[in-house]
Structures are given as C-alpha cells and as structure tokens.
C-alpha cells in the first residue's frame, strides 16, 4: 500500500513479483486436459444412462479446476480473488438449487398446482400452445418419399398464417395420397383407436383458437412419460 515507499529506494513491496511456472508444468497440464477430453468422449460412447450426464459434469469440473489452478494461477493468486471467484459458484448453486426446488416440486402438495398435464385426466393445460396440445409431446417423422401409405397425422397447421408450423402439414400438404388424414377429424375420430383418434382429430383444430381446441389430445403427456405418447401415436398409425 501507499505508505511503504515514499523514498527513492523501493522496498520489496514496490514492484510486482509474479510467480513464474515452469514451461514443463504447462505442457503437463495441457496433456492432462487433452487426456480428460479423450476420457469424456470415451465415457460418452459407453451407455450409462443418466450417469452419462453426471460423469460428463464431473470430468468437466476436474478440467475446469485444472485450468483454474495452473493456467489461471489461482494457486498463487491472492486469497480474496480465489474466494470471490469460487464464491460466485456458490451463488450459481443457490440459483440452480432454489429454482429446481420449485420446478421439481410443483404439483407435489396440491396435485394440481404447477403441473402441465392434469394427472387425473391427462389433459394438457390451456395455453401450452395449440400445436403442442394437438400433437402431444412427440411428433412423428414425416415419411421419406417412397414410403407411401404412412400419412403424417398432423393437421394442417397454419391456416391463420400467424404461426408457422414447420413439420405439421409437412406431409399433409405434399402427400396427396392421404387427403383425408389431415384436417379430417371426423374420420379419424371414427377409427378404432379411440384415444389416438381423438388426438389426431384435434390436430386439425385451429392453433389460435380462443376456446380450447384440442385439449383432449390424449397424446399430450408429460415429457417424462414418454411411453403413453408412444402408444397413442402408434395406435394412430395403425388405423
């Protein structure tokens, strides 16, 4: 600080004395980092399910601490800088933790508060986007040319011209072979697979309807419950 050097002869406190890391250390650090990158790619190719994410984050954290410690000189840095920088991670954790405390616990107490899909009826909440309501969490891939007979069951989407809905209508518009499938709820509704039929039926409804077009779409389920949607969609295909 200011008091120690009022004289021409400067003490130790005057100039900066940086710690110089040997080049060898840096090379070693680089090699470790590249090795860890290799490792993380390796882990990716082993199927661990949800643990893949955990392993990826773990390795990333190790890599990040190595970069911080040596490349960023945190090892030799002033204590405050270290504390403040690491402290910022603490706030990130608060941010994440508290937000997840909300998003993961919605609908636990009052089963109907905060859920996107009514657990009792399977109905998707109003306002989820009419497209989402109509098609559910999943969209079928449009058939490749030559795969005739597999009409996309998406309704024609953007009649009002406001919401471009890319793949909805995709097949319907082009695939003249199945004119009744798209936007033809009455027929689909008559089909033998009642739940999926309804879903498809509502797909034809207007995307911007103020009333609740297609709320009954049974294919609409919560993201984690993929199986139900699958069944619904497959049933439609079977018609």
């Amino acid at each position: 600080m200011a008091d120690a050097h009022a004289h021409a002869e400067h003490g130790d406190d005057y100039y900066v004395h940086a710690h110089i890391t040997p080049a060898r250390t840096y090379v070693l650090v680089l090699a470790t980092l590249l090795f860890l990158t290799f490792l993380t790619v390796l882990a990716y190719n082993v199927h661990l399910g949800d643990w893949n994410l955990f392993v990826a984050v773990l390795i990333a954290t190790i890599k990040a601490s190595i970069v911080g410690t040596w490349f960023m000189h945190l090892k030799y840095e002033q204590r405050f800088n270290l504390i403040f920088f690491l402290g910022s991670l603490f706030f990130v954790i608060i941010f994440l933790g508290y937000t997840v405390n909300d998003t993961e616990h919605r609908g636990r107490q009052g089963t109907l508060t905060g859920v996107r899909v009514d657990p009792a009826t399977g109905k998707r909440a109003f306002g989820s986007g009419s497209v989402l309501q109509a098609e559910g969490e999943f969209i079928r891939l449009p058939p490749l040319p030559g795969e005739a007979g597999q009409a996309g069951q998406e309704g024609e989407a953007d009649r009002d011209g406001e919401v471009p809905e890319p793949e909805a209508a995709g097949a319907a518009a082009e695939d003249g072979a199945a004119p009744t499938a798209a936007g033809e709820p009455a027929e689909a509704g008559d089909s033998e697979a009642p739940t999926a039929g309804e879903a498809a039926a509502e797909a034809g409804a207007s995307p911007t309807a103020p009333a609740e077009a297609g709320e009954e779409a049974s294919g609409a389920t919560e993201g984690t419950e993929g199986t139900e949607a699958t069944e619904g969609a497959e049933a439609t295909e079977g018609e």
Binding site: G49, E135, F138, I139, G226, T227, T230, A233
Partner: peptide
Amino acid sequence: AIASAHHNAGPDLVPYH
C-alpha cells in the same frame, strides 16, 4: 439421432421440445 439416443420415446417420434 432417435435411433442412437438413450432417452427416446420410440422410433420416429421426435420430441417436441
């Protein structure tokens, strides 16, 4: 991608999200 993804809802089903 759907074929190789660990979490998927079934063949040809594209997640909306």
